[in-house]
Design a protein around this nucleic acid. Sequence first.
DNA 1: CTGTGGTGCGTCATATTGTGTCGTACTTGA
DNA 2: TCAAGTACGACACAATATGACGCACCACAG
Lengths: 339, 339
Amino acid sequence: MAVKELSQIERQLAILRRIPTEPQKVTVNDLIEYLETSHNLGNLSKRSIQRDMAMLERVFGVHVKTMGRENYYYFPQGSHISLKKMGPDLALGFLLMEKYTHSLLPEASLDALAPYFKEAKLALKNEKYKYADWEKRVAIYPKVYPLEPAKFNANHLLDIYKALLLNKQFKMNYTKKGGETKDYIVSAQGVVQQEQVSYLIATYEGQKAEGLIQFAIHRINNIEILDSSPKRVAGFDIREYLEQGGLDISLYDDQCIELIFNRSTAQHLNETPLAKDQTLTELIDGRVRVTATINITQSIKWWLLGFGDQVEVIRPKAFRDDMKKTVQGMMQLYSHKSL
Amino acid sequence: MAVKELSQIERQLAILRRIPTEPQKVTVNDLIEYLETSHNLGNLSKRSIQRDMAMLERVFGVHVKTMGRENYYYFPQGSHISLKKMGPDLALGFLLMEKYTHSLLPEASLDALAPYFKEAKLALKNEKYKYADWEKRVAIYPKVYPLEPAKFNANHLLDIYKALLLNKQFKMNYTKKGGETKDYIVSAQGVVQQEQVSYLIATYEGQKAEGLIQFAIHRINNIEILDSSPKRVAGFDIREYLEQGGLDISLYDDQCIELIFNRSTAQHLNETPLAKDQTLTELIDGRVRVTATINITQSIKWWLLGFGDQVEVIRPKAFRDDMKKTVQGMMQLYSHKSL
DNA sequence: CTGTGGTGCGTCATATTGTGTCGTACTTGA
DNA sequence: TCAAGTACGACACAATATGACGCACCACAG
């Protein structure tokens, strides 16, 4: 490639893109090498780059630290440069994302995102928009999960993601169901986030049986990323894993379900269908017969039980019997006098 | 304020921040006025700004359109300038947010966010990070909601948010439960997003009784933002509204609940407690007595029913009787022979 | 249709700013 | 203590930005 000439501004922007955030840093010599190799430039004097840095410091808030005889340049953590003002669509997107996810994201990510959220709020505070009481007007409200979220260290999640991305194994200390803790050398295969609880899908060193193990992330006590490469399970795909009932085992082979709903309850199946092939038929007694093809899992059973006497399971027969048995168990509970 | 002098770069950056995205546009005269008022600059020649624009076009991809005798400048939709490269924490934050929210956000917001997501993926594709199969390794998986999401037009949601922010009323066509449609002039008070379904909390013109009305957003057929100001309900706070059972009515005044769980089922209450003041006591028969202070709502009943015979409601008495009655109803369903 | 006043843009002399080459002060490591 | 490397101020010179034209073009009004 030919040696190009770059105008001052273009050169300064190229430098800007090279400046890392806080833990990392860069020297003038690094920058020269970068510009010469990546941008095929010759003929840049060190003095000019030094002057550029002074300007970037003044205009873009690049930080400088003189350590020893060299200057190191970096962005402080959570810094942000915005050249383009956010439009309302974009700003709203950020605000909604913050609402939806702020309890789910690792701290480090939240810190890094904070300037974007701040900017979004600012963008909605100008002449036209009145961001004033957004907090008082918009809420996300979980329906069926009155539980407090598991005390869940999102930093561990971050470490797992990093291990996945860096293609490394990691060592973790984990509290097993019984309460005993154990160290594992883990090859992460995937992560599933389910409502408030996240699971790591992985294999570990010294595993007795073949297969993928699920670890609850909130039971992880400590993580340390190792240098070794993980043992990858060939052809692993988290969606296939979930479809084959990774978290949620199919109770029956039969996937054709037939239910009879109360009329009022059936109504909302119109809006949120059980499956794409769902059919609804009104019966003589006013109730509604529903058929659909779905994996019949523990979740489905739970969901149907939740409707109480407003739904009756007809098919598969085995599922009906299962429901009947459960109801008999419940009946027994409430036949006793309460303690 | 004194008339400041700005260097070329600083001026160009100031201009850049003033350039809007596509539907809007800006002329050189607008920019001069902006710089003179907002940045207290005098002495800028029109020719210099014109030259600046040529440079911004070349370096930052600002688009220009000559309409009539003037030039209009704007950013194309979905354009994005990144001067700072994303760190891994930030990039992960974006990827997770995309995973969590991409089915919930309005199209326009998604389009505007797309460059950020793209940049995040790029940031994880460099020397160190292997973004390769993120899609195959990370999933969000709803637990208790096997339903297909309501066909829900996120653009209507966007319009509602805009009406809230712009402090305007809007007109909407809405399909009522029965199936009939009706036009409303609406004063939005808030929005609640609950799992897959979003609700607009509002008052409307010609409302018969006092009070806040809930509209399901997926039943809205059309929205048009008006110029009139909404009637604000004094002191409205969505959190208070929800706590007082806006969506989810308390069934009983008594908030002290007492349950007896199976041992295995009770275990996960350790991790995700029912409430902050929850107490667990093991009984002689191995089951676990749980007490907690919570709003006893339809959701809670649903949730408890879901456990089938693994939980028994003890108190409040009225709630126990309610559960008993429901179980008797279920018993009746399953005593019949199936059709 | 024609004139007036506005715009964009090329050009040129001039003012301003960027650049390379010093020198000096300072730090580190041999 | 000295050599070698860095940061940075100063200075002359080169490069670039600026303002003042002029021309071409367009819109609008008379």
